[in-house]
Amino acid sequence: MLGFLLRRLGSLVFVVWGVGLATFFISQVVPTDPAAAALGNNARPAQIAAYREKRGLDKPAWQQYLLYMQALAKGDLGKSLRTQRPILNDLKDFFPATFELTLGAMLFALLFGIPAGILAAVKQDRPLDLGVRTLALIGGATPVYWLAILALLLFHSKLGWLPGPGRLDAFLLAPPRVTGILTLDALLAGDWEVLVDALRHLLLPAAVLGAFSTALVARMVRSAMLEVLSQDFVRTAKAKGLPESTVVLKHALRNAALPVLTVLGSLLGGLLTGAVLTETIFSWPGLGSYATASATALDFPAVMGVTLIAGLAYSVINLLVDVMYAVFDPRIAYS
């Protein structure tokens, strides 16, 4: 187990390094000058040259890369060309918002995807199953940004049930920043009003972002359940006269959980991608908005920071999934 962990950690480092290298490579083919983009409308050639020199943009690519890696080794991601701040600070500001949103979406997906999948499997080929499958198919094909616009229009504008874009009502004061995760910070500060408002703001974007994942989870759970339900021990359990709900929840679900676990990693990747679009519509100040703004401004140091942290998050989650797998499923040997 320890050997396996070490090997996986090694490959994690490699993958994250590769993600950084690939981004760096892309940044080198940019035709426009990031210095000119950063200095704005009125910069003069001399200023642009000075800026290039100051930021090391005039050095050959390999030197720039070495400098970057040197700094990275010290935990310094460099400065953003757009915001002029250390990228680490930017990420600290933006990551918690995306984390909160993604977590919300994931919860939504599990909360609705798992029961839907179970119900569909139990009532295979009945109207309920068809309904779940149809919804899952549509959920997997809907452009998330359009869903976001519609949801906002319906639940916020027309019905007025939920608040509009943003993380918190502007008239409320945010609790002292501890984690940057607003709901958690509100809880820590014991601020009930902020907690409720933050949750209300979170509900819609999380549901929209989670729609695709809900579809995926429902499909996975359904097929895994079908597989398990047809197996001998379930039939035996049924034959023993145990109530169906017990059989389903106790025996089948436990065994169906593993395949769901495997998609969690890729689910997260998909959520981060979806967050880019969802955050745009919901004015959600997260990593997605930050990445879009940075890519638009050709701020590659910032894009690099985002890809590194996203790559790291993805790799860590997958590692955790693998470890959980090892814990839950003793059949898998790690040598």
Binding site: S11, F14, V15, V16, G18, V19, A22, T23, I26, S27, V29, V30, P31, G269, L272, T273, G274, V276, L277, A291, T292, A295, T296, L298, F300, V303, V306, T307, A310, G311, Y314, S315
Partner: peptide
């Protein structure tokens, strides 16, 4: 390992970086 790297990339951000770089 290269495919590992590409899997770890958030797809839309990679695509954004490429599209941004190429115009």
């Amino acid at each position: 390992r290269i495919t590992d790297i590409f899997f770890a990339f958030p797809a839309l951000i990679l695509a954004m970086a490429i599209a941004g770089a190429l115009g």
